[in-house]
Every structure is written in structure tokens, then in C-alpha cells.
Design a protein around this nucleic acid. Sequence first.
DNA 1: CTGTTAGCGCTTTCAA
DNA 2: TTGAAAGCGCTAACAG
Lengths: 332, 332
Amino acid sequence: MRVTIRDVARAAGVSVTTVSRALNGAQDVGEETRQRVIEVAKQLNYRPSHVARSLVLRKSQNIGLLVSDFRKGGHHFLYDVLVGVHDTLAEYGYDVTLVSTDTARQQLVSYVDFCRARGLDGVIVTGIRLDDPYVEEVVESTLPSVVIDLPLLSRHCGYVMTDNVNGARYAVRRLVSRGCRRIGFVNGAAHAAVSRERLRGFEEAVRQYVGVYDDRLVVYGDFTLEGGQRALAELLARAPDVDGVFFASDLMAIGGLQHCRAAGIRVPEDLAVVGFDDIDLARFVTPALTTIAQPRYEMGCEAAKMLVHMLEKGEMPSGTLLPPQLVVRETA
Amino acid sequence: MRVTIRDVARAAGVSVTTVSRALNGAQDVGEETRQRVIEVAKQLNYRPSHVARSLVLRKSQNIGLLVSDFRKGGHHFLYDVLVGVHDTLAEYGYDVTLVSTDTARQQLVSYVDFCRARGLDGVIVTGIRLDDPYVEEVVESTLPSVVIDLPLLSRHCGYVMTDNVNGARYAVRRLVSRGCRRIGFVNGAAHAAVSRERLRGFEEAVRQYVGVYDDRLVVYGDFTLEGGQRALAELLARAPDVDGVFFASDLMAIGGLQHCRAAGIRVPEDLAVVGFDDIDLARFVTPALTTIAQPRYEMGCEAAKMLVHMLEKGEMPSGTLLPPQLVVRETA
DNA sequence: CTGTTAGCGCTTTCAA
DNA sequence: TTGAAAGCGCTAACAG
């Protein structure tokens, strides 16, 4: 049924070893033998079995993409990362297998065991948070991994994330340059690593550009639209004189915009707004959202590249920070 | 290094055969032997190698998800489908491997060969169009497949798509019920199967609800925002008295909205607009877009289910139509 | 340069 | 009920 290496060997009148060598570019094969083998293989439309090869080589050329929070509608961040990961990995000759943390079948076993059972060579982890039970596993396991958006560094685990500190600084600088002096911050979930960094960048920048820092101007949303609405209402109740707000996600910023519209607050005249992420909604809301863009696609690429380098060149994992970028539109 | 079935056998004092049987729930194993084996396996944290099992069983419990047009920013339709596919497949105990048609490494070989080389049990195909070179392959190959959004039915190939004909009808009906009498249609790419069906639904509905059908009111965009802008401009130039427009995608509709704003056309007063897809942008543009929602997640689930049924129960592939839904917002 | 041999980790006849 | 042996398709010593 299936064309195997034996069929090729037989048809070419050589041993399977020779076929293997010829097709894998070993040098100890006669040139004309190689040509004949290649010719026959093509004739027979032979495709080496990755499965068999994985078994003997003990590596699968297959990487897991672990996704926490893999659900309908959660695409804003994930999709581009996924494409970046896939593009790059395909380039290097790796396949990618999706691994979700919250699928019924899988939620009990450790994800490392999941990957091991499948012989995955490594894993790229997304959507994980500081308080996640998986964090420990990622750090301790010897399965080569690269985490996106969480600074976990160990012998077998590197990470790539946006430079959130500077991202927050850019936002504040923009607000200040527009004349804002009382700047609020609607941060994301407190247990997200990115939240800590953005807070740090926010505080540093406010101290530097404004002078006085008032931590009552920091409130917490949960990265969602509704969270942003609520958080802004709370902030405004607490400090009605706020003239600019930095939101730790575009979704929250858009929630904030909705609150403003409902409350009759003009943006940017009464209140300037800067978001974070640059999801494509940002261009389309009215007024269009000024925001800090994250290089999502590139983060995926970078993570994939690091993992392959760890796998193939034995490189040490590292922490990579990618630069965010201010995108000026209408809200600030 | 790795715990194999032999380790378990040794530790349990039985043969590998017995371990295999015990762990796979065969009945010809003594109950206490089975318990012991299970206990030992747990103790040793044994995970059967999927690779080895795939090799001998000649099936991998692994499905390919073929994506044409897998690129940065193209998530509007794809992401939810992908999540649906993954959720359902995971439920059934299958892994999913991403396969992209346009990645450098892969573009030359046939995707069927790609899947075969990896021992994939089947494939779910998305983003493919009528004029795609892959169409032939999908139909002819014996690799079990399910296509999303393209009605390809053969011995080994089923499909699932939205009921586009009725979707278009709902759009027209909505427009008519708002009083529109001269209804235009900005269709998507002509070679997309969905475009034909939507056109059919449009024509049928216009004949039914309006009475007269004028095919000069049909123009073509390419599913993109810019395409929608251009197409609407063209339509309006051709027929300035149009009072309602149905766009075959939300992205095009949003482009149309932008054109309206630029041209001083009030929506929905001067021109009512209905889109198609219900991407999440639709809620956020101003005015919010009335549209026909596609059950993207469910399409993914359905496709996965069909494929698994084909694989495990030997069911014949079939064509499945999922119902769209009118979502009324502000533009119509 | 080429072939023989021995597995990779697992399932499955076939005997016992 | 259990085990020995063969083999899935491939690669890699080790000889020749």
C-alpha cells in the first residue's frame, strides 16, 4: 500500500541503507548510485515516514504550541503570534502541534507529559500567567521551551516579550506631550507579568516627565472591555481631574471610550487616551485609538527561532525583549 | 532515559505484551495483573510513545489543519474555526497539526503528500477557493478530508459551510423591511464558492421581496476593506438611487461605511447597510454594523466531527450547511 | 562505496 | 491468562 524505503531499494537494486544515505545526503554514496536512487524515489513518489524516522532518531521535528485560554474570541493577541511561530518553524523544517491547556482530555496531565508522549522536541508557551500552575512545570522541566510574554528563564526555558516598561513610557510621554498633567493608569490583571512591567514603566515615566507620582491614579481592569469601562469609572470617581489615561490593553481602552461617550466626556479634549496592543479594532473605533503596538508576529518568529537554536545549536535560552511602538491616532 | 513499556514490564514482573494489553484495556488480562501493571505504570510515570504506536498501528490520531492564506491579520474568519476544530478534535483524542499552503518549504509538494509523510489520519481544509490548484487534489485523493466553505463532495471528502443562500436572503429581507427598494450587492471574489451562493440568495430574495431584479446593482469587491470602498463607489456611480447595500463581508461593509462618511452619505438614513460574517469589528464601528453572522466556531466543530466519524465509523462524507443569523445593529 | 545487522517503542499473531 | 517473536519504516554502527 504505502511506498516504503524497501520498495525504493528493491526498485533501485540497492540496500535500504544505501537509499537512506542517498536520500539524506550522506557523502559515502557513489554519485551515480545516488542519482539512480533519487530517480527511482521520485518515480515511485516515495515519501519517507516521519513517524518511523522520529522513532529511530528520537526527535520528531515537531514543536508544541501551548495555548492557555484558547477560546472563541480570544484572538486579538494570539493569532498573529501563532502565524509567526508557524511561519518560522516551517522555515526550519518543523511542524507545529496545537496543545491547549483547557481541553477536557488534557487538563489533568501535565503538559510536559503531553509533549513527551508525542515526542515533541520543544514547546512554545503562550497565554500563561504568573499564578498559573504551569509556571513551575515550565521552569523545572528539561523540555526545551520558550515562553511568550512571561519572563521565565532557566536552563531549558527562554522567553520573548515586548519591552513593556518602555511601552508604558512611550504612552506616558505621548500624554505629557499633549499637555496632560494628571495621568491615570488602568492596568491589566495584577498577576500578569506584563502588568507589573507596565506599571513600572508608567511610574518611572510619570516621575520623570510629570514630577509627582500619585498611586491613587492606578486602577485595575482585567484586560476586558467591561473591565476597562468599570476601571475608568472608578478612576474618574476617585480623581475627577484626571486629564489623560493609559490603558494596559486596547480592549480596556475601548471600554473606556464607551464610558466616555456615555458620560459625555470628550476624547481627547477632556480626556486623552492611549491603549496598548494595537489590535485592529483600534483603527476603527471612533475616535480612533492611539496606542502602543506590540510586534505580535515578530514575537512568534523570535520565539520559534530561539527554540530552534536551542534545539539545533545547543544555544542557551535567553530573554528577548522586542520594541513596542507608539501609533498615534485620534485619542491622544 | 525515557520510561518505556519494557521498564514497566520489568518492574511489574510481566512481559511487554501483558503491559500493552493491561494498559489498553484488553479483556484477556488477569484483573490483579492489570491492577499491578497500572499501578507500576503510574509509579514510573510511564507515557506510551505516540510515535511508536503510530508506526505499528498505521494511524497517528493526528489531523492536519490546512490553511490557505495563513497570514498576519487574516484572523477574522479563521481563528474561531481553528478553535472549534481543535476543541472538538481534542475531545475525540486527536491532535492537530498546522499545515500551511504558502510556507516556502511546503509550497511545492502536494499537501496530500505532506500529510501522508506525517502519517496524518485526515485533514481539514480551510481558505481554499474554486480556482485553487488544491481543489483537484482534495477531491481525488483518498485522504479523508473535510473542507470548510467550499462544497466539495466525493468519496473521501465532505464539507461544511454556512447556508449562504439564506444568509443573503436574510440580508435582503432586512433591507426591504426597512423600506429599501433599490438594493445593491457588493459581492466578494467571484471565484469564491460562497460568492456564487450569496449572489443566488441575493437574486432570489430581490425577485421575491422587491419584484424587479437589476443585475447592474451587483458589483465585486475582493473581501477587503479597500475593495469594499471601491466597489461601493462604483455601485453608487452606476446607480445613485440605490438605497440599501448588502456586502458579502463585514470588512467590505466597513470599507463602504468609510466611503459613506467621506462622501457625506448618512447611514442608515440615506443608505442602509448589511454586512456578512459578524467579525467583532462589526460591533465597534460607528454606526455599528448590522450583519449576517456565520457560526465560525461551530463550523470548525462540525468539520472535526464529520472527519472523526468518517475515520472511526466509516461514515460517508456529507455536505453540511449551518444556519447564519441576522444581527441587527445600527446600519440597517 | 555498499550491505548486514540491530534496534527505536509499541502492538499483535501464535503458542503455551 | 500470559509470553515469545515478528514487524511497523527507518537510521546507524560495523564490516567488508
